[in-house]
Design a protein around this nucleic acid. Sequence first.
RNA 1: UCCCCAGUAGCUCAGUUGGUUAGAGCGGCGGACUGUUAAUCCGUAGGUCGUAGGUUCAAGUCCUACCUGGGGAGCCA
Length: 482
Amino acid sequence: MEQKRRTRIVDLLKTSEIGQQTNVKGWVRTKRGNKHVNFIALNDGSCIHNLQIVVDVPNFDEELLKRITTGASVSIIGEICESTGSGQKVEIQAKEIEILGDCDVDKYPLQPKKHSLEFLREIAHLRFRTNTFGAIARVRHSMIFAVHEFFTKKGFLNIHTPIITASDAEGAGEMFKVTTLDLDNTPKTEEGQIDYSKDFFGKATNLTVSGQLEGELAALAMGEIYTFGPTFRAENSNTTRHLSEFWMIEPEMAFYNLDDNMDLAEEFLKYLIKYALDNCSDDLKFLSQRLQEEEKNKKADERSMELIEKLEFVLAHDFIRLTYSEAIDILKNSKPNKKGKFKYPITGFGSDLQSEHERFLVEKHFKKPVILTDYPKDIKAFYMKLNDDGNTVRAMDVLFPQIGEIIGGSQREDSLEKLTGRMKEMDIPEEEMWWYLDTRRFGSVEHSGFGLGFERMMLFVTGMGNIRDVIPFPRAPKTAEF
RNA sequence: UCCCCAGUAGCUCAGUUGGUUAGAGCGGCGGACUGUUAAUCCGUAGGUCGUAGGUUCAAGUCCUACCUGGGGAGCCA
């Protein structure tokens, strides 16, 4: 067979070169027809749509056609034709068919029918071959690109922060240990503790839970920076919103106060959403239709807004900004609180906001994304700037419908004295953080930053319900198969 | 980690107060149809009822433990 470079299906479907010969390669989704003509739906991952291959059966060997089964890979040489059927504009009239890889239908788990997401999670190595996961993979790529484009346009530098860290003081969560010690025979100190001085790095090391502290070092020299890398949390979290390994975007900006920080966060989220609408419309339409079918099984009052409509709605409206104290007042006087509908009733300042409260504010009260600021210092991290009231810190959480906290950020404490004071209160050892504190010793400036969980953004943009479906190879407790 | 729900054919599920030979749809396979759109129509094969114990004359069905999956909570992004 003549080996010409193949044409991608996404390009063929846009072509006007009727009558031209072309070569396509891909995986068979379905084959149907009769003894005279067969139709192959071929997909090569370049777009959500399949290309229809028309096969005049008498022109081909019967045994060859039998091998064209769901999942088989084929190379087709044929002529681009206007389709006489109604499902597509162009199709390929096959001249030569080569089976690249057979696919035993008795063993291949993907069938030409609808599969549940739970089942596909068990065969995650093959789920790229479905419409849904193909669409998600393409949207995910577009979102990655949009992140870099947004920050590049704004003059931010991308900084690679370390994945292995020695710092365990940040307190963002349980960490995965990194070691080359023989776990069956660990060296011990005189006190009987594990002697990490004998370990690879000469000290105890972990996988990073955040690039923020290192990001601050860069920001306090480069101005505006962002990180976009893998992050690890060893929490035993079993939810639809948590992963043990996820990708986080953390911008950090010198000379930004909390208001600047909020402006940036809102602009950033809207940029990503607009990018998806502008560049992933076919995939989003497919994901939306999928969701609409699922929604049919729900009660009328539990149905959510259509996906694209929802994305456009978020673009069109300002996020609501209010302080923690204002939120507490709203919640305290809310119907569910007065009627005792909250599992955790709101009594006043200091109450921690539970998901039920966040959901009430976002989904019932404002019906828009909400940015909550100025939380009590006791429920937030040590590095957040203390307000003049001495009680609250310049924190901000961006809350999205269905997802909850999508962004957490703050203006950072730039006073060395106040920062070390907070560290003492929270029992964070100063010695280990000397390099971080140096930023406050030498030319400290007002600065701010936030962290966006990339997969949470993916949940929102794709409308998917489980975070394990928006990352190709999910890592979660008891889950590391693929 | 806690609470709730589920596990029956390749997939999605039904299976009555415990009772004789385990059911459907989809998918597969065979056949029919000269252009189909996850085609349609006819036929057909396919089961260690999650695992291990227990109760009972009798267990897919009841009890216990464990495993797996899902939903919710907490932790958070």
